[in-house]
């Protein structure tokens, strides 16, 4: 474990917590893409499938973190699609998730480290996570604005994988550890946030709201 991965995981936890708090406190999921949250839940379940296959005693923080990610993302989907369904902005959350899931699944079957079920699921989860934020960014571009709290969520969510890139650089240099698939997908994922990062740093930090087109 290195400082970059630690802060990356903390940033990821913060993003999940911020979103849950926003929905729970405002009792509304306006401005939140349910599809993105569904895709994240699929990512966690397919990536941590080993938790289900053979029960593991919660002996280390990693297992606990995996369970937190899975349960929090499923709970977030429950809030969006059931509890606060009336506030779900289905009309603007209109990006076709199939256009993200099918190519990720196809690519996972073509480009992977080992052609076995667990490895393919893990690879699918990595590819899907890289593009899972697109429905959320699409929704913001359709509505033309993002609530400040949602911007903080996106900043934390984007920072998590950006910090992981620093973690991979660190591990390459000190542990000669390389995972090309995760690195390439992580770079693509972080690049998708660049436009938002620019808006966040130039606007939200100064207390303004993000309004598109910028």
């Amino acid at each position: 474990m290195n400082i970059f991965r630690l802060f990356g995981d903390l940033s990821h936890l913060a993003a999940i917590a911020i979103l849950l708090l926003k929905i729970w406190k405002t009792r509304s999921c306006a401005g939140v893409s349910g599809k993105t949250q569904l895709l994240f839940a699929v990512c966690f379940i397919t990536r941590y499938i080993d938790l289900f296959l053979h029960f593991v005693s919660l002996y280390n923080t990693e297992k606990v973190m995996k369970l937190i990610y899975i349960s929090a993302s499923v709970f977030t989907c429950y809030l969006i699609f059931f509890k606060f369904k009336a506030t779900y902005d289905g009309n603007h959350d209109s990006m076709r998730a199939e256009f993200l899931i099918v190519p990720a699944a196809g690519l996972a079957c073509l480009i992977n480290t080992k052609f076995d079920a667990i490895e393919i699921l893990w690879t699918f989860s990595i590819y899907l996570e890289a593009v899972a934020i697109l429905p959320q960014l699409f929704l913001i571009s359709k509505t033309g604005e993002a609530e400040t709290i949602t911007s903080h969520y996106l900043f934390a969510q984007g920072s998590y994988r950006a910090l992981y890139i620093l973690n991979w650089i660190y591990r390459y240099h000190y542990e000669s550890h390389v995972d090309t698939i995760a690195i390439v997908a992580g770079v693509v994922q972080t690049i998708l946030y660049c436009d938002f990062f620019y808006l966040y740093i130039t606007k939200v930090v100064k207390g303004q709201k993000i309004v598109l087109p910028a």
């Binding site: 991965r5 973690n167 550890h177 390389v178």
Partner: peptide
């Protein structure tokens, strides 16, 4: 040899 993708990350 670079040890490739040991699944030790979240």
């Amino acid at each position: 040899k670079l040890n490739v993708n040991s699944k030790d990350e979240l």
